[in-house]
């Protein structure tokens, strides 16, 4: 695309320069003028017809993308993270996750994007151009990944203090790997199997966490913060702010304001004993 536009730019520039530097000569003869006009009209008509055929071609290609096999994701921008809901015809197979998308390679993906606070913009440069997330309005975009990989996305519309730390990771993987991931995400959270993890769960449910977060399978069901049901499967916390390790998680729970000032996670003074078992529980949420 770059080289095509570069070539067009060079050609146009050459004509402009030629016109600028060429001296005005004697008035052209009638025959020469006629030939020029005919050539110009012919070139335009041919180009338009080529574009018309190309447009039909593109339309057919888009129509045959296979809408029935598409994966539909409702992506909601928030200050400053992404809430993703994978749609499914069966309500029990819908689920929420945050800040990380998984998509199958070679299958079309429909993203229905919207926002609940200010205007954000979905931008994963390797997969799609920018598309704004408008509060109160849902926009549908189609994309398809042809090469497996992890693609980094970023909010591309200034949305407040932590606009820069509003990243989104898209993992494109084989259809089997994707279905396996989806099957796991649909499940409720793993029941803690050790005493420590059980105590950690109780700390979670007793503390302020349940005011904003959901862990499916427990009584925690609030939707103000990211869904934590499968937190341990995610690579980052705070929308790409920190890697998802035990240490960073502890820092985030205690004082998220130092890593991402202004976000909605309040400081939580959890005693160290409780914190250790809480981390054990959170790390077990595979």
């Amino acid at each position: 695309m770059f080289w095509v536009t570069a070539a067009v730019f060079v050609i146009v520039s050459a004509f402009v320069l030629a016109a600028v530097f060429q001296r005005r000569s004697a008035p052209a003869r009638e025959e020469v003028l006629n030939v020029c006009v005919t050539l110009g009209v012919a070139a335009t008509v041919v180009t338009l017809f080529v574009l018309l055929v190309a447009s039909i071609w593109t339309g057919r290609a888009v129509a045959s993308l296979g809408a029935s096999s598409a994966v539909t994701i409702n992506l909601t921008g928030r200050q400053w993270w992404w809430d993703a809901e994978y749609e499914d015809g069966t309500p029990s197979r819908r689920f929420h996750t945050a800040n990380e998308l998984h998509i199958p390679v070679g299958r079309p993906v429909v993203l229905k994007v919207t926002s609940v606070d200010v205007i954000h913009s979905f931008w994963v440069p390797n997969l799609h151009g920018k598309r704004d997330l408008i509060p109160g309005y849902t926009t549908a975009i189609w994309l398809q990944a042809d090469t497996p990989g992890v693609y980094r996305g970023q909010c591309a519309e200034f949305c407040g203090l932590q606009h820069a730390r509003m990243a989104l990771y898209v993992t494109a993987e084989s259809n089997d790997a994707f279905e396996q991931w989806r099957t796991n995400q649909i499940k409720e959270a793993v029941q803690p199997s050790t005493d420590d993890a059980r105590r950690g769960r109780d700390v979670f449910l007793r503390a302020t966490c349940t005011q904003c977060h959901t862990i499916r399978g427990t009584i925690a069901g609030a939707a103000m913060g990211p869904d934590l049901t499968h937190l341990a499967t995610r690579g980052t916390i705070g929308a790409g702010t920190l890697p998802n390790t035990r240490g960073h998680l502890a820092g985030w729970v205690l004082d998220a304001q130092s890593a991402k000032p202004g976000n909605q996670m309040p400081p939580n003074a959890i005693p160290s004993g409780d914190m250790q078992v809480l981390l054990t529980y959170l790390e077990g949420l595979k």
Binding site: R206, A207, T208, T210, Q211, P266, P267, N268
Partner: peptide, 8 residues
Amino acid sequence: RGKIPDQQ
């Protein structure tokens, strides 16, 4: 108490 942080 214990559910909403003091500042909030």
